[in-house]
Computed example of a mutant assay.
Amino acid sequence: MRAGTDLLGRLAAASGTYRGRGDGTEIGPFVARMVVTTALSGRAVTIDYEATNDRNGLEHLEHTVLVVGPDGRLELHVACLELPGVVRFTQSSPDQFTAYEGPLVARIQLTLPRPETISYGWWWSRDEAPPREQSRADLRRAG
């Protein structure tokens, strides 16, 4: 597997349910749940992610597919309540994916810092400034 697509193989091998805590500039502290599922004999991984808090309940709901794109780089195809339809994030470094489609300059940071752990962060900017971290969850495999 190419070095750039190593994340796909690592996530495919780490399928399961993850739970953890996070914090966000707009929603504050939250509880996160992520289900990672291997699809198409390891050629794709689906990520179902949600964030909830005691104040507002469900704050973020997302369904994402991770695949190798036509240029050989990984792509995240993200559908969530905050975005208009499915948005493609292209791998810009081993653990970062960027999107310049739509009104927001956005980035997703997806890492597996240790076995059975996932760190998932959303970065964006509403103006001309570079994106900054707006939300991040640190999750550990459940059960």
Rank of each mutant, 00 (worst) to 15 (best):
G4D: 07
T5R: 03
T5L: 00
G9D: 07
R10I: 02
R10N: 03
A12D: 08
A13E: 14
A14D: 06
R21T: 14
D23G: 05
G24A: 15
I27Y: 09
G28N: 08
G28P: 05
P29S: 15
M34E: 10
V36H: 12
V36K: 05
A39W: 00
S41E: 12
T46L: 05
D48I: 02
A51I: 00
E59C: 14
T64H: 09
T64R: 09
V65F: 09
V65G: 02
L66F: 06
V68S: 13
D71C: 05
R73H: 15
E82N: 09
E82K: 05
F89Q: 05
S92D: 12
S92Y: 04
P94F: 09
Q96L: 13
T98A: 15
A99R: 03
A99S: 15
A99E: 07
A99Q: 04
Y100A: 09
G102K: 07
L104P: 13
I108L: 14
L110M: 11
L110V: 05
P113Q: 04
E116S: 12
E116A: 13
S119E: 14
Y120F: 14
W122L: 14
W123T: 00
W124D: 11
S125L: 07
E128C: 05
R132H: 09
Q134Y: 07
R140S: 15
A142P: 08
